[in-house]
Every structure is written in C-alpha cells, then in structure tokens.
Design a protein around this nucleic acid. Structure first.
Lengths: 172, 172
DNA sequence: CGGCTCCGTGTGATTTTATAACGTTACAGA
DNA sequence: TCTGTAACGTTATAAAATCACACGGAGCCG
C-alpha cells in the first residue's frame, strides 16, 4: 500500500560514506525519483516540499529545521517554523529524508527507494553524517524484542565517532 | 581508566523487559551500586545526584528533564533547569542512566555496571521503555563503518513499536 | 458552473527542551 | 590553613517543536 516500486532506480552517486561524488546528478536524480514516487502514489510534491528536498540534497549534510526554514524563506516561502517542519515531516514520512535524533536535524535519504533500515554514522568532530544500512532488527535486537513480546515497527541506529578525515587529524 | 569493576554486582530485579519486579530492592541496590562505583572512582555522589537517580528508579520510566526538575524542586533542591540537566548529565556520563533521544527523556540504567551497548524498546502507545542489549557495532554496522573508515565510539539504538500489553490491546 | 470538502500553506503565539553566564559554597589536596 | 577545582543555585536566553486559526486552491459531485 505504501509503495508500488517507484524510486527503485536510484541516483548514480556513491551511496555510502564520506567520499565525494557527482552532486548535480545526485540531486536531480533524487528529485526526479521523488516526483515519480509521488505521482504514482497520489502524493502532492508541492513547491515547498520539492524545494526542501533540493536544499537537503544540496547541502548534503544534516540540517536543523531552523536552518531549513532560513533557506525556505530565502527561496520565497513562508517564514514560520511550521513551514519547515511540515515539509520535513512529509519528506521523512515518505522516505525521502531522515531525521537524525541525536542532532535534531534532517538529512536527505541516500538510498531513495531502497529497502530501508538506515543507520547513521555521525562525526563528533565535524558533524558530518553518513547513511548506511543496518539489519539491527534482524539481529540480537530482534531476538531480544521477540523474547520480550515487543513488536518492533521502526528502528533507529545512530553511531557517533570520528569520520575518516577527522580520525586522520586526531592521529596526526 | 573509566572503571575498575565497581557495580558488577547488579540489582536483583529482572533486567530486561516489561515484566514487573521487586522495586524497592531494585532501587536500593542500584543506588548502593552507584555509591560504590563513585566512591571507588573519585566521583562525588552528591545529594542532588543521588536523588535524581532515586527518582529515575522510582518512576521506572523515561522522564523528561523538566519532570525531573519538578521532582527535585519538590525534594528541596534548586528549581532551575540546569539543576536537572546537570544531575542527569552526571548520571548518563557514568552509566547510571541513559538518554532516550527519541523522547528527549532519561531512564535509569537497567544493567548498571554491565558491559553496555544498550538498546531501547519504546512503546509508541504507552511510552514505556525497556532496555536491552544490542551488539549493533559488532554486526553489519561495524562492518560498514570499518569499510567507510569511520571509527565508532558510541552507538545508540532505539526501536519503536508496541509493548506486549499494548500489542494485546491492539489485536483485540 | 456552483458549492462543497479536503488538504496544504501562511501566520501569530506558545510550549517544550536545552544552554550560557555568573556568583557562591563545599570539598580535596598541598 | 590555604588554594584550586568542582558542584550548586540563580537569572537569562537560546533552540526546537507545536498549537490554533484563517486563507486558498484542487478535486468532486450535483
């Protein structure tokens, strides 16, 4: 019910990690994928929502809701917090973005359309965030939950540490 | 450097899950363990900190910082936010409590002194929280991090879903 | 077309969560 | 005892999130 098979063709940027990649292509492909997904699922990919997604992709980092709001205002949209929160809520609800709880911030999804049990690597030095996969709910966590009679619906995994660049500096 | 082997003897309450258990014993044992740990590590287990821990244990649920503040004020301590935040920061830093990022709330550690890669099961219906273990960093997440050159220092795992009680109601 | 409803948007106001800054007190070690 | 540091209490402020309400456009039905 939630998705037919919309954005299964995902952008040509390298999916995981801290490497650089083809940014312009990454953005336009992700936006197109979102558009297709919305069209196919009766969702309205409105200007604010599109712009919010573009901003997240453009920045390519975790953005606070108020940073998002600033940028949306600059782009001519409303200037009150709900504008940003609503757009972000839509993006998160539909898998185009994720919320990083630890940072109270949002980041574009790096694997749009993919199966999705995302995990995040957060650098404590430079605040960069990388998205990766984690089968948390299928490992020991799933076992523990089952043993406790708990029915897992969603799992959040966020690891803090040092990204390659910052780890290098720290060692030097 | 961080711990000799202080609170390795942990309280006689059942460690995981949503079952009931011996509460009074649980509390006094956990407080005693914290006291021992602090004494052995040059940490000051001051009245506010002790009271904050007692409150968390007493409530046996995730408590917001301002709820904690209310109770500390009732107990005769300061009445401004930093009072609660500082006590909670101490408890978290020393492993006596954990922050549930998803709820912006704090809960007493259910395995004081144990090895500690905690994970949490959060009921979306009743907001109860259970602590369990997760070897997240040693599974696929660890592999991905290593591949990316990321050095994990801490991992946060929080699963949302339905606790046994609420799942039962939902099915009925 | 006209009227209806739903959903999304814009705005003002407020609530909730968290930190900054500063003076005072209490404690441990020289 | 003296001295440095850590903890505490307070005022003030910042940051994050939500509430409530009005307006307007898209789709639907007659």
């Amino acid at each position: 019910m939630t998705s037919g098979n919309p954005a299964a063709n995902h952008p040509p940027c390298e999916p995981v990690g801290f490497e650089t990649h083809d940014h312009a292509g990454c953005i336009s492909a992700a936006v197109a994928a979102a558009e297709t997904h919305c069209a196919g699922n009766g969702l309205r990919f409105t200007p604010v929502r599109r712009k919010a997604l573009e901003i997240l992709l453009q920045e390519h980092r975790a953005l606070g809701a108020y940073e998002m709001l600033d940028r949306l205002r600059d782009a001519g949209f409303g200037s009150q917090p709900p504008v940003a929160y609503r757009a972000l809520e839509f993006l998160v609800a539909n898998g185009f973005a994720h919320k990083i709880e630890r940072l109270n911030a949002f980041i574009a999804c790096a694997h749009p359309g993919a199966s999705h049990s995302p995990a995040f690597l957060i650098c404590t030095a430079c605040s960069s965030v990388a998205e990766t996969q984690s089968a948390a709910a299928r490992g020991s966590l799933g076992d523990a939950a089952r043993a406790a009679g708990f029915r897992i619906e969603r799992t959040m995994v966020e690891a803090e540490g040092l990204c390659p660049a910052c780890a290098g500096k720290a060692d030097a």
